[in-house]
Amino acid sequence: DIIVVALYDYEAIHHEDLSFQKGDQMVVLEESGEWWKARSLATRKEGYIPSNYVARVDS
């Protein structure tokens, strides 16, 4: 799995977006363009995230 960590807070604009806080970790489910589908490890919610707001966690 690709794990990313939030670099900034993000408040969902559309209902399919995923809100998150700086430091939150998410599993990337699908990478396509600038918006990635991800699942929050904390809340288990899924939605689209702006890929420029996150960084990959080296395992």
Rank of each mutant, 00 (worst) to 15 (best):
V54I: 07
D9Y: 04
L41G: 03
E16H: 15
I13N: 09
V54P: 01
V57Q: 08
V57A: 09
S19M: 04
G23S: 03
F20H: 01
G23N: 05
F20I: 03
E11F: 11
P50G: 03
E34G: 10
N52I: 09
E46H: 06
R39F: 11
Y48K: 09
Q21A: 11
Y53T: 04
A42K: 14
Q25E: 11
D1G: 14
E16K: 10
W36K: 06
V27P: 00
Y48F: 12
K22L: 06
W35T: 07
W36G: 02
S19I: 02
L7R: 05
D1H: 14
E11I: 15
I2N: 11
L7A: 03
S51H: 10
A42G: 09
E31G: 13
L29T: 07
S32R: 14
E11M: 12
K22I: 08
G47L: 01
A12R: 05
S40W: 02
G33A: 06
D9N: 10
K22D: 02
E46F: 07
A12Q: 05
E34S: 13
E31C: 15
Y53P: 01
P50D: 06
A42V: 14
M26A: 01
V28E: 00
A6S: 03
Q25D: 03
E34A: 13
V57N: 06
V28A: 03
H15P: 15
K37D: 01
L41F: 07
A38V: 14
D24R: 01
A38Y: 02
K37I: 09
M26P: 01
W35P: 07
Q25C: 14
R56E: 06
V27I: 14
E30Y: 10
Y48D: 03
V28I: 14
I3G: 02
I2K: 12
H14D: 09
D9G: 07
G23T: 02
E34D: 13
A6Q: 00
I2D: 08
F20Q: 00
D9A: 08
R39T: 05
E31I: 14
Y8A: 09
D24A: 05
I13V: 13
A6W: 01
D1A: 13
M26S: 00
R39C: 08
G47C: 01
K37M: 14
H15T: 13
S51W: 10
D9F: 04
Y53L: 13
K45D: 09
S59T: 13
E31H: 15
S19Y: 04
A55W: 08
A42T: 12
E34Y: 15
E46V: 13
M26F: 15
A12D: 02
R56S: 07
D24K: 01
L7K: 06
W35F: 10
H15D: 15
K45G: 07
D58A: 11
A42F: 08
G47F: 02
L18P: 01
L7C: 10
R56N: 07
V28Y: 02
H15Q: 14
V54A: 03
L29S: 05
D17I: 07
V27K: 08
L18K: 00
K37Y: 15
Q25K: 15
M26V: 02
V28D: 00
K45R: 11
Y10D: 00
L41K: 06
L29F: 08
N52P: 05
T43G: 06
I49C: 02
F20E: 00
K45N: 09
S51G: 08
F20A: 01
P50L: 07
V54D: 00
E11T: 14
S51D: 03
R39V: 09
D17Q: 15
D9C: 07
E11H: 12
S40H: 15
Y8E: 07
N52D: 11
A55T: 13
Y48W: 15
V54R: 00
R44W: 14
I13Y: 09
Q21G: 07
E34M: 14
G23F: 05
I2F: 15
S59C: 13
G47E: 01
V28N: 02
L29N: 03
S40Q: 10
L7Q: 05
P50F: 07
E46G: 03
I2P: 08
D1Q: 14
L7G: 01
K37T: 05
D1K: 12
W36S: 06
L29R: 04
V57Y: 10
I49P: 01
